[in-house]
C-alpha cells in the first residue's frame, strides 16, 4: 500500500478527533466512566508501546534493558523529558560499545 494512504489515514483520524469536539460536539462529557477512561488512556498506551518493545529496539536486549532502567530511575527522580531521553540514548551507545569489545 502507498505510504501516502497511511499518512492520510493517520492525519485525518487524528485531526477529526481534535476538531469535532471543538466544532460540533461541544457539550462536556457527563459520564464519569468515560472521563476516567480517557484520563488513563495515555499512561496505558505509552506503557504498552514502550515495554517490552524497548528491549528489541537495539542491537542487544542488554542495551535495551539498560536504557529502560536508566530512564525509569531518572524519571522517578523527576528529571526532565530531555535528560531522560538523552540519558537512555547514551546508555545504549555505551553498552553496545562495551558488548562489541567482549
Amino acid at each position: 500500500m502507498s505510504i501516502y494512504a497511511y499518512i492520510a489515514a493517520m492525519a485525518l483520524t487524528t485531526y477529526l478527533i481534535r476538531v469535532l469536539p471543538l466544532t460540533v460536539f461541544r457539550k462536556p462529557i457527563k459520564s464519569r466512566f468515560v472521563r476516567s477512561f480517557l484520563h488513563y488512556v495515555p499512561y496505558a498506551c505509552l506503557t504498552a508501546m514502550t515495554f517490552p518493545a524497548i528491549l528489541y529496539s537495539t542491537e542487544s536486549v542488554i542495551s535495551g534493558l539498560g536504557a529502560l532502567i536508566v530512564a525509569v530511575v531518572l524519571a522517578f527522580f523527576g528529571k526532565s523529558l530531555l535528560t531522560v531521553s538523552l540519558a537512555s540514548c547514551v546508555t545504549v551507545f555505551l553498552l553496545e560499545r562495551i558488548i562489541s569489545l567482549i
Binding site: L46, T47, E59, V84, S85, E96
Partner: peptide, 30 residues
C-alpha cells in the same frame, strides 16, 4: 542511529513514571 532509536521510549518513560509514582491509580493502569 541505534542509540537514537530509544529516544522516544525515553520520552514515554519520562511522561509515565512521575504520575505513576504519585497516583496509585495511574500506577495500576501502567
Amino acid at each position: 542511529r541505534v542509540a537514537l532509536g530509544v529516544m522516544l521510549y525515553g520520552m514515554f518513560i519520562a511522561i509515565v513514571v512521575p504520575p505513576a509514582r504519585q497516583e496509585k491509580p495511574v500506577l495500576v493502569a501502567v
